[in-house]
């Protein structure tokens, strides 16, 4: 009885309470995250075959010379760069247009443009895969036929494959990114624009000299999520090709390669090595981003 009292006292003390509150995070972090990273790094130096595990040093990392690995890494980087180039400026311009004083029914359009974000990657994948089907009657083939172009095999030619993937990306995320920008725009005081227009600045000048600099934090945020989303892209490609397979690996991404090694070929060593490489890329990008953001400098204050 007394023991229980002490335990209760300790648990209820102001010193122990914060640890009780954050315990769920610490436990899941250690069990699922830290342990996973640890075992992945260990496995990347091993050849795992059933119960026999052999230390093989850096052998698994020879995967960096594998031509399919190089291709998938290039694909991921290409996808990331182009999707950033699309997903940062386009929603920004649309947000500014939507926020314009002359615009009517703002919230109506805002809501409608947000709808694609509610669909899962699977539903989006099903629709786009079939819209860009190779049948003559597929929607996109009908569209180009009305311009006098012959039917295309969209999902087997590199150029059109990437176009479809960027369409899916634009379709799903424009509304969301636009919303980020809109909430950023609302924080810019409108007198800035008024005084700019009194000084004779054009809409374009106001956009470059007021909107863009003041939206910098939002732009950086959108850039960050676009980079990580881009590098981790897999499900979109999986849906468009109906599996982790694409003719000649035109649509294989870094995660796709990891998936192939780890789950399809059951090569745990190489799968882990690819995971470690991926993790290093993520950490380097984060570090660069924090650096560019000036976070290190600011902390000194």
């Amino acid at each position: 009885m007394k023991k229980k009292g002490i335990l209760k006292k300790v648990l209820y003390s102001q010193k122990v309470a914060p640890y009780v509150f954050i315990a769920p995070f610490i436990i899941t972090f250690v069990v699922f995250f830290a342990y996973s990273i640890f075992s992945m790094v260990m496995m990347s130096f091993q050849k795992v075959a059933g119960p026999n595990t052999v230390f093989v040093g850096l052998d698994n990392y020879k995967v960096i010379h594998n031509s399919i690995f190089i291709k998938s890494l290039k694909n991921s980087i290409f996808y990331t760069i182009v999707s950033c180039a699309l997903m940062i400026p386009i929603p920004l311009v649309m947000a500014v247009m939507l926020n314009s004083k002359s615009m009517k029914a703002k919230s109506f359009f805002r809501s409608l443009l947000f709808i694609p974000a509610l669909t899962s990657v699977v539903v989006a994948g099903v629709v786009f895969r079939m819209m860009f089907g190779e049948l003559e009657g597929s929607f996109m083939n009908q569209v180009i036929a009305s311009f006098g172009q012959g039917p295309l095999i969209w999902l087997r030619t590199p150029g059109t494959v990437w176009m479809v993937l960027f369409f899916v990306c634009l379709w799903r995320w424009t509304g969301v990114n636009m919303m980020y920008y809109l909430s950023g725009l609302q924080q810019i005081p409108s007198d800035l624009y008024e005084s700019a227009s009194i000084d004779g600045a054009s809409t374009w000048q106001a956009f470059w000299n007021i909107t863009v600099p003041l939206l910098k934090p939002t732009i950086i945020y959108v850039l960050t999520i676009s980079i990580f989303g881009g590098m981790a892209m897999f499900s979109e490609s999986y849906m468009i090709f109906n599996g982790n397979k694409s003719p000649n690996n035109i649509g294989t991404t870094l995660v796709g390669f990891l998936y192939r090694m780890a789950f399809e070929q059951n090569n745990l060593g190489i799968g882990s090595a690819v995971g470690v490489i991926f993790l290093s890329i993520v950490l380097v990008v984060n570090f660069l981003q924090l650096f560019a953001n000036g976070t290190f400098g600011r902390k000194e204050k």
Partner: peptide
């Protein structure tokens, strides 16, 4: 511990797909 929260937030879950599956 808060740095750990940020770490989990910035590492895409795809990175640890394989070890997590094994676990």
């Amino acid at each position: 511990s808060f740095a750990c929260v940020l770490l989990v937030m910035m590492v895409p879950t795809e990175v640890i797909l394989l070890p997590l599956y094994r676990l």
